[in-house]
Write a protein that binds this DNA or RNA. Sequence first.
DNA 1: AAAGAAGTTGACTAGTCAGTTAAGTAATGC
DNA 2: GCATTACTTAACTGACTAGTCAACTTCTTT
Lengths: 201, 201
Amino acid sequence: MKKTSETKEKLLQVGFDLIWDNSYGSVSVDDICKRAGINKGSFYHFFPSKADLVVAAYEEAWKETRPELDRIFSSQVAPLERIHLLCRHIYDMQKQTAEKYGHVCGCPFASVGSETATQDEKIRVMMEHLMNAKRKYMESAIADAVREGSATTKDPVMASFTLQSLILGMLLEARVQNDLKVLEGMEATIMDYIGAKTVSA
Amino acid sequence: MKKTSETKEKLLQVGFDLIWDNSYGSVSVDDICKRAGINKGSFYHFFPSKADLVVAAYEEAWKETRPELDRIFSSQVAPLERIHLLCRHIYDMQKQTAEKYGHVCGCPFASVGSETATQDEKIRVMMEHLMNAKRKYMESAIADAVREGSATTKDPVMASFTLQSLILGMLLEARVQNDLKVLEGMEATIMDYIGAKTVSA
DNA sequence: AAAGAAGTTGACTAGTCAGTTAAGTAATGC
DNA sequence: GCATTACTTAACTGACTAGTCAACTTCTTT
């Protein structure tokens, strides 16, 4: 037997990858098991349903993303620099997965959230929370920027909601157009929107 | 027999509605036929595949939307008023479908586009074109606004891309959060972004 | 009215879907 | 070492999947 369920972790990882690359509806439990090299019985030993696997897989993915975001949005980093790092992080991730999968994949949470929103409440609620958790990083960065005078937007909370939508929209377009170019103007657009005073070239 | 294929039109309309309400993957040909009260053989008499039905259905939906957009973005209407009308149109449509289906549905083109982007090239390309066609309305409205001095944004084309992403992002969030409130700030955000001089209260 | 075209019907594939089951193996606790 | 638990295996449901087909009806053309 493998230590602390190597199997479970493999299923979580393969499930996440496969669904991000394709879609919730088009990836079957059999697909996931096959790719993971695991029997279906084992799948259902760990997860009561396909939807539960997805919830667990995306929770796991979020747990792995958080430290990265905590690093990017560290208080030790200048507010505008945090936003710069975020944009670069998004671009790098998208470029990486685009090379890995052969096409631009967009935001995994938004894609699955949108697809399942009207069908699986458990997944929908989770994606809603995850997306809001992401937004909060931006909210505090903008608030800090305004406080230190490096940005002039009047309502940092409002701005974070707007920019969250903008980023998700850009990632959606990048996926549909299968083109990373969409993401190139992201940083400039964000900086402009919050009225950032240019700090670096 | 029904005149000039009432059946075909019914399939197009039911297909569009069902997929907007749910998702491409979760709606089967049987579902569409059942809801339309039509036999599967007839479905395949008119459409070679499910994907082809979707392409036809969304083409049809776009054909029906275009006159509405032409009206909203008429040269007879002041540029900023066009944007105002668009925002109200989006909100009204979303409210209407939310009441009809019991939840916020978001942008039909973006949802299907995102879901099928990496799986069905024919659908992906179509959604890409449709989304760009929509953007162009905004592009000319912004350009007109700048020309007449009612907006100050430097690059109307760039702005239209940004706002397109913003709108799609907001609709995506509205769907995932199942909440129309997300859309309420749309107009103010857009007007602010293009540097619109307030024309009406 | 005759013939061909257009549309309809419902039964039919052949494969896939999520999920189950029972019998097995391996690790752990005592 | 014995029992309990954790996990694996592979075959199995029964419902559903996209798509086919041949016989049928109805319309249009002449």
